[in-house]
Design a protein around this nucleic acid. Structure first.
Length: 828
RNA sequence: GCCCGAGUGGCGGAAUUGGCAGACGCAAGGGACUUAAAAUCCCUCGGAGCUCAGCUCUGUACCGGUUCGAGUCCGGUCUCGGGCACCA
């Protein structure tokens, strides 16, 4: 038998065995308590990277740990398989996206298996399987019937490099989330999911997620939803039978509203100046603004500009003729896209008014000051007392909000409103490699959903990739030309595909059943396994995927598919893998290929280092030396066992007599079990759990030579058996190998997690710190829970302590059991 | 600008409830083994100082506070990271 630690041989052997014995297969079983552990599934880009390795290693430890604790653990894996890179590969090299994706999946699957992850592969699927997206198409139709899907023509974010529109969530700092190109606004017909219908619920449920989700993710979601309470006010346009609606949080300043600002995209803009001399100027300004990319338009330095439309609207309380401007800083997609301008009390309006010589009326006086519209140099945005405000003059601005709003209601000019920043989710993508939207455009019946029995609407495979701006589907006549589901007349299919975030919004429920064909999932399976108990993935999905998935789960509940309305009970967001101070990326040339690590050090060492280098939520610094350290520890552990294995395989003497000189070892064993259990369970701090196990190994090395008697080996055996068992979720291959070398029964995946005896965790004696006036002067060894008198007595006889209290008066002694004694002495 | 995080040895990081700062690992130095090297095993390892078995001073970004006692709590400052950012 070879005595060298040889990970290649061991790991392949055990992986084969686990697979042939189907040990990772699970079934719903209402007799047993379930635990659903999920890691965010990968996009099949070609090879796994260190980020995947870290994410999935963390998940695997928790899954295996929970299994050993007796839970029925669901731990699935699959592929987020629709998306742009496949289509780009097709354009670049002529490989069909489907082929490219399938090949990548096959390769990455072998890589994941080589890492030893405990997935139930029977549940695997790719979102590009028609058996999967077929159900998504059904959900789409059902949502359409419930009014949760609609089509609208509006201005949307357009990425010219990806040749498709993007949802608001997918624009980061004015740039495309995927390719980083500048995003422009473009008018487009689009399909929308009515996520705003769930805005309040998405916000309310955040309270329930506080326990298990990182605070910063919840804060980001809260900000994204952006609830604010205010008033909707209607301003009549002079000489036109039309109103402009405005949302404001400051109706108390209404008496100071002296002009109106519209977003360039506002639908009224075109009609206001029609046929007037200003039409040319106005449309030139609108055109110029729309051509600017989002990054420019939202920049700090963007100059506020506007153009007068030539029209006025009427302030409902003052009758003031407010000139209507189109202003480049007004957001079309917040509130109503129109803002009542109160220059005295809003800085933007103030600057705008100064620039264009518009009237400034002060309507709120701050306490103890007197503002004058003529001389003020900036807007006053705080609270105060109303002035120039008709019958409201003299009241407090906070009270005025409610009073003016109710006055507007009496006039039928306004009402209290809650406004959300969240917009409906635009899910149309003008791309090929996605799930077809199951709708038909009929010249007679309009837009009609396809019949359910015709699902799935398969993505045509015989397409040409030219790289032009038009999706290849549009050119597939056999796909586009169809019969209307309603009147059977000639009609055209919708050629947009769904945003790939739709697939990832419900894949976790599909996993609950093993690829069912009659239903998206069995409801009994979903009700047993859902919600996900622990979800693990990158922080970059804090808003995008995690908000969409929450929304979609609520929809599925309302459609009667599931009983829960929140999909993820607990969320762990793991940090990035960093090398040389930067995120690993091809362009920086600092990528570490996990495959090379497995070659050189094995999957176990790779796993161990990922867990040891940092706690999971922090960024992890990659270090080539660090993985050597992990490998060294495994080799050291291996040698320890090989040196002692003959004595350890003998049956347990189960001796109650622990020899005196081994009390330390016995205690350390139980303390280590306690620490490792708590570190995993309470904190996911695998790094400190590993450190504790390393300490126990070090202790065994120190004692190794002194062990001769059977009852001595029994103590060592307990330590070693516990260590192997506890190491198995981290480094499962070497653990199983050693376990079998020692002749222990079965595989550790099914073994129970070791328990500790609290009695053995406690020392009989403790070393406590002795301070004089708060400074450490000595230590004293005393019995556990010793009385103060004894400790004091012991402390006072110490010569160093004597030195510092000599000639002083002891005023007070502070004693904290088993921790410190602090002697307060003052010189006389 | 606003809202969150974080700042501890040469490095990654420990210190879980206010109680001996630096666990564990990496790097470095020394020793043992070896013809030699690698591997392995053992020891040292924040800084300064002293009358060096030991002891003292100092030290957790900076300034101040609370406390017998602060890496931990409070107030302020700086730096870095992240999110939001004309939100009416």
């Amino acid at each position: 038998m070879g005595t060298e630690y040889n990970p290649q041989e061991i790991e392949l052997k055990w992986q084969k065995k686990w697979e042939s014995e189907y040990i990772f297969k699970v079934h719903a079983n209402s007799e047993r308590e379930k635990y659903y552990l999920l890691e965010m599934f990968p996009y099949p880009s070609g090879r796994i990277h260190m980020g995947h390795v870290r994410n999935y290693t963390i998940g695997d430890v928790v899954a295996r740990f929970k299994k050993m604790q007796g839970f029925n653990v669901l731990h699935p894996m699959g592929w987020d398989a629709f998306g742009m890179p496949a289509e780009n590969a097709a354009i670049a090299s002529g490989i069909h996206p489907k082929t490219w994706t399938e090949e990548n999946i096959a390769y990455m699957k072998t890589q994941l298996k080589r890492m030893g992850f405990s997935y139930d592969w029977d549940r695997e699927f790719a979102t590009c399987d028609s058996e999967y997206y077929k159900w998504e198409q059904l959900f789409f139709i059902q949502m359409y019937e419930k009014g949760l899907v609609y089509r609208d023509r509006t201005f949307l974010n357009w990425c010219d490099s990806c040749k498709t529109v993007l949802a608001n969530e997918q624009v980061e700092g004015g740039l495309c989330w995927r390719c980083g190109s500048q995003v422009f606004l473009k008018e487009h017909d689009q399909w929308f999911f009515r996520i705003t219908h769930y805005a309040q619920k998405l916000l309310d449920n955040i309270e329930r997620l506080k326990e298990g989700w990182p605070e910063r993710v919840l804060t980001m979601q809260r900000n994204w939803i952006g609830r604010s309470t205010g008033t909707l006010i209607r301003f009549q346009i002079e000489d036109m039978d039309q109103d402009i609606e405005v949302f404001t949080t400051r109706p108390d300043t209404l008496y100071g509203a002296t002009f109106m600002s519209l977003a360039p995209e506002h639908p009224l803009v075109k009609s206001l100046a029609r046929g007037t001399s200003r039409e040319g100027d106005l449309s030139a300004f609108v055109e110029k603004t729309l051509k600017e990319d989002k990054l420019t338009r939202t920049s700090d330095l963007y100059e506020k500009e506007g153009v007068f439309t030539g029209k006025y609207c009427i302030n409902p309380l003052t009758g003031f003729r407010m000139p209507i401007y189109v202003a480049n800083f007004v957001l079309y997609d917040y509130g109503t896209g129109a803002v009542m301008a109160v220059p005295a009390h809003d800085q933007r309006d103030f600057e705008f008014a100064k620039k264009y010589g518009l009237t400034i009326i002060v309507v709120i006086q701050p306490p103890g000051e007197h503002l004058d519209g003529e001389t003020m140099e900036s807007a006053y945005e705080g609270q105060g007392t109303l002035v120039n405000s008709g019958s409201f003059t003299g009241i407090d601005s906070v009270d005025a909000i409610e009073q003016i709003t109710s006055h507007l209601m009496d006039l039928d000019r306004g009402s209290p409103t809650i406004n959300f920043r969240l917009r409906d989710w635009g899910i149309s993508r003008q791309r090929y490699w996605g799930a077809p939207i199951p709708m038909v455009h009929c010249p007679r019946c309009g837009t009609v959903p396809v019949k359910r029995e015709d699902l799935p609407i398969l993505l045509p495979e015989d397409v040409a990739f030219s790289g032009t701006s038009i999706s290849p589907i549009v050119q597939v006549e056999s796909f586009v030309n169809t019969a209307c589901p309603q009147c059977s007349g000639p009609a055209k299919r919708e050629t947009d595909t769904m945003d790939t975030f739709v697939e990832s919004s419900w894949y976790f429920i599909r996993y609950c059943s093993v690829n069912p064909t009659e239903r998206p999932f069995e409801s009994s399976d979903a009700s047993y396994w859902m919600p996900v108990d622990q979800y693990i993935g990158g922080i970059e999905h804090a808003i995008l995927h995690l908000l969409y998935a929450r929304f979609f789960t609520m929809v599925l509940k309302d459609l009667g598919y599931v009983e829960i309305d929140e999909p993820f009970d607990r969320l762990l967001t793991q940090g990035m893998v960093i090398k040389d101070g930067a995120k690993m990326s091809k362009s920086k040339g600092n990528v570490v290929d996990p495959e090379a690590l497995i070659q050189d050090y094995g999957a176990d060492a790779t796993r161990l280092f990922c867990l040891f280098a940092a706690p999971p939520e922090k960024d992890m610094d990659w270090s080539d030396k660090g993985i050597e350290g992990a490998f060294r520890f495994l080799s050291r552990f291996w040698r320890l066992i090989m040196d002692m294995k003959d004595q350890l395989s003998s049956p347990d003497t189960d001796s109650v007599d622990v020899p005196d000189h081994l009390h330390n070892l016995k205690r350390k064993t139980h303390q280590t079990i306690r620490k490792v259990t708590e570190d995993i369970e309470k904190r996911f701090h695998f790094n400190t759990a590993i450190a504790a196990m390393m300490e126990l190994v070090n202790e065994l090395y120190r004692l190794k030579e002194s062990l001769t008697e059977p009852q001595e080996f029994a103590v060592a055996r307990e330590a070693i058996d516990s260590l192997i068992t506890m190491l198995s979720p981290f480094v499962p291959h070497i653990a199983d190998e050693i376990w079998s070398i020692l002749g222990r029964e079965g595989q550790l995946f099914d073994a129970p997690w070791p328990s500790y005896d609290p009695k053995w965790c406690e020392h009989k004696e403790v070393t406590i710190a002795v301070q004089v006036n708060g400074k450490l002067r000595a230590t004293a060894t005393v019995p556990m829970d010793a009385e103060q008198a004894l400790v004091e007595q012991k402390a006072l006889v110490d010569s160093n302590v004597q030195r510092f209290i000599e000639g002083s008066l002891i005023k007070k002694v502070i004693y904290v059991k088993n921790k410190i004694v602090n002697i307060i002495a003052v010189s006389q």
